[in-house]
């Protein structure tokens, strides 16, 4: 008994130290860097990690690959700015309405869509998001194709309109922390167990009495709520949303890509994926974008290709591999 705990205790302690150090680094680095552009990239990493982590609940843990999550993102973004346009509310006050709309939509379309398998599910989610985009484009009351704007000038701190990117970084980061805590709690409980069972072999899980449909729907609801909140935060920062930037298919794909790159179905995968993708995209654009040759995307795309080629399970795979090697050596 005691012989078994001796080697694990220092490792658990080591993990705590590592965790605290990582958290401290995440909190402190933006204060040490003075460059606002770098700070802003940090904020965007958090924003991307938020949406990718929210997607991860459905796409990673439950294995239902949605490519239409921008639907919920758009609900949040539009609710924020429509609240301002119609009632002159601070954009963030629209967030609860975005979440409510997202939950309602998820409830309505969730049941029939979650019955679909594999690619059929993915395609149906794309169709749903595209439907929403087309409806908004053709509805002048929702800003139509022109889009909706936030306050041109900040009126109070509630408008979340800051010159420095730092407040955004910490706001997005705290929401992310809440989401990750929830994900961690969920993945350790019965729900996480069921979702993994559904992802592995849905039919087998069902035959063992797992109410698959109900758990998938629950995962979708939580995921939709957080994705919508991300949309509201994005809209508050940017002060503008139009159908392409708020409901375009590329945004859905980017959520999937960020999660898949870091490791879907892992707690920190989406954060790691975002921490690589977002700076990569911004840096390649800063370095090559002005040349107008498209080399930005050649580099960006090639790196994604290489990662998928050498770590098809995402970077989490490399991590697991390294750890396995480490334990083998240690043992």
């Amino acid at each position: 008994m005691s012989a078994a705990t001796i080697p694990t205790a220092p490792r658990a302690a080591g993990r705590w130290v590592l965790g605290v150090a990582a958290l401290a680094a995440l909190l402190a680095w933006p204060l040490l860097v003075e460059d606002e552009f770098i700070q802003r990239i940090g904020a965007l990493v958090m924003l991307s990690a938020l949406s990718a982590s929210a997607w991860n609940l459905v796409g990673g843990y439950a294995g239902q690959i949605s490519i239409g999550h921008v639907l919920f993102f758009g609900c949040g973004a539009y609710a924020s700015l429509l609240g301002f346009t119609w009632f002159e509310w601070a954009p963030i006050l629209g967030a609860p309405f975005g979440i409510a709309t997202s939950l309602l939509l998820a409830l309505i379309v969730g049941s029939p869509t979650l019955r679909l398998k594999g690619h059929y599910f993915s395609m149906a989610t794309i169709a749903l998001a595209e439907l929403a985009r087309i409806v908004v484009v053709n509805t002048p009351a929702l800003g139509g194709a022109v889009g909706v704007s936030g306050p041109a000038m900040p009126r109070s701190v509630l408008d979340l309109s800051f010159i420095s990117p730092l407040p955004y970084y910490y706001i997005f980061g705290s929401v992310l922390a809440v989401l990750l805590l929830f994900t961690w709690w969920m993945s350790r409980g019965r729900m996480g167990f069921y979702l993994r069972a559904i992802r592995g072999q849905e039919r087998a899980a069902r035959s063992l009495g797992v109410p698959a449909q109900r758990y998938k729907l629950f995962a979708l609801l939580v995921s939709a709520a957080f994705t919508s909140l991300t949309g509201s935060l994005y809209a508050a920062m940017l002060g503008f949303v139009d159908p392409d930037s708020g409901l375009g298919i590329l945004l859905s794909v980017k959520m999937v890509i960020a999660a898949a790159l870091g490791g879907a179905g892992t707690l920190f995968g989406p954060l790691v994926g975002s921490a690589i993708l977002v700076p990569l995209e911004e840096m390649t654009n800063a370095a090559f974008g002005g040349g107008g040759t498209g080399i930005t995307y050649v580099v960006y795309g090639a790196i994604i290709v290489l990662i998928s080629r050498f770590a098809p399970g995402g970077l989490a795979e490399i991590w697991t591999w390294l750890r396995a090697r480490g334990t083998r050596r240690g043992g």
């Binding site: 890509i257 080399i295 050649v298 960006y300 290709v305 998928s308 098809p312």
Partner: peptide
């Protein structure tokens, strides 16, 4: 190589490939 991984790896790999082809 990508087929060894989950379906997500295919999305990742072919999305990256699409960008490379388009912008090359």
């Amino acid at each position: 190589h990508v087929m060894r991984g989950p379906m997500l790896a295919q999305i990742l790999g072919t999305f990256g490939l699409a960008l490379v082809l388009r912008y090359a």
